[in-house]
């Protein structure tokens, strides 16, 4: 009996460790590969770099435009986070606290945009619209479209809003505080945890977004984000000689979010698990 459980446990652990290895190895390959020479990457079959070539990062940063891509990714992600949280929290506040005509219609509309899957077709009218508004030659077009897709953050903040006692609104009202001031001074600070989780999720989505910036910046390399610039390396004429840039560029995209994940993995996971009950 003892040996049987021991055997079972060993099999269990081998399975877990093999799967953990498979999960981690692509990322490990990327990180280690970002320090290798191109020829070592394409023919070397080595695990560790034979010579740590830190200059890959400098070259990718300076010659392969990754400084521009990183800056663009940061601008898109941070602006989208701020915009999304602002727009969604304001809407969540009035929908949760106030009564007004058309509330059900608004909530239905948000749910609709979350569940209808029509794929790339929407990118076309979105792009034409931004051309008309003259927002296609900057990153604002991309940012506005990313902010417009805030339905899930709206529902998340809505459920957090429910947890803030209404007595606080009442007390503020009696003290002569307008609903607007109540929102900025009382509700928003108390919404902190919800905003934090929402920020994490929005940042992940905007930072990792590929198709939208791809379509908007096809002919404008100076506006491309990390995901677009990196994928374009793969299609370039000199792709075969730039595998080391691909790895360094991939690290630039992966590492910030990975660091955030290491510190906040509980929030990331809590949110995913929470969406089940919501």
């Amino acid at each position: 009996m003892r040996t049987k459980t021991l055997l079972g446990k060993s099999i269990l652990w081998i399975f877990l460790l093999v799967f953990a290895f498979v999960t981690l190895i692509p990322v490990v390959i990327t990180i280690l590969g970002s320090f290798k020479t191109n020829s070592e990457l394409t023919t070397g079959a080595t695990f560790l770099p034979s010579l740590w070539k830190f200059s890959n990062y400098r070259e990718a940063w300076e010659q392969a435009n990754f400084s521009t891509y990183t800056l663009n990714s940061l601008i898109v992600a941070l602006t989208t986070v701020v915009g999304t949280l602002l727009v969604a929290s304001m809407a969540a506040y009035v929908v949760e606290r106030m009564t007004f005509f058309g509330k059900k219609l608004y909530v239905g509309m948000q749910a609709f945009t979350m569940f209808v899957a029509v794929g790339a077709v929407v990118l076309r009218p979105q792009f034409d619209l931004m051309v008309k508004l003259n927002l296609h030659s900057s990153l604002w077009g991309v940012i506005l479209i990313l902010i417009s897709a805030h339905a899930s953050i709206f529902f998340i903040l809505f459920s957090f809003m429910k947890g803030i006692p209404r007595e606080l609104d009442e007390a503020a009202r009696i003290d002569g505080c307008s609903p607007g001031r109540t929102f900025w001074r009382i509700i928003l600070p108390l919404l902190g945890p919800g905003l934090g989780v929402g920020a994490l999720f929005t940042f992940r989505g905007a930072w990792n977004e590929y198709l939208l910036p791809l379509v908007f910046t096809m002919t404008k390399p100076e506006l491309q984000t990390l995901t677009v610039g990196l994928a374009n390396l793969k299609y370039g004429i000199s792709a075969a000689s730039q595998t080391h840039y691909m790895m360094a560029g991939a690290c630039l995209s992966i590492l910030p979010i990975l660091v955030a994940y290491i510190f906040a993995n509980k929030s990331f996971m809590q949110m995913t698990a929470g969406s089940l009950k919501g």
Binding site: F19, V27, N208, Y210, A231, A250, N265
Partner: peptide
Amino acid sequence: AVFFMPTVISTAVMAVVFFT
């Protein structure tokens, strides 16, 4: 945390990595 990690990084970026 290890098993959940792939969901936080970009699909497009990992597709480039998986291509190599």
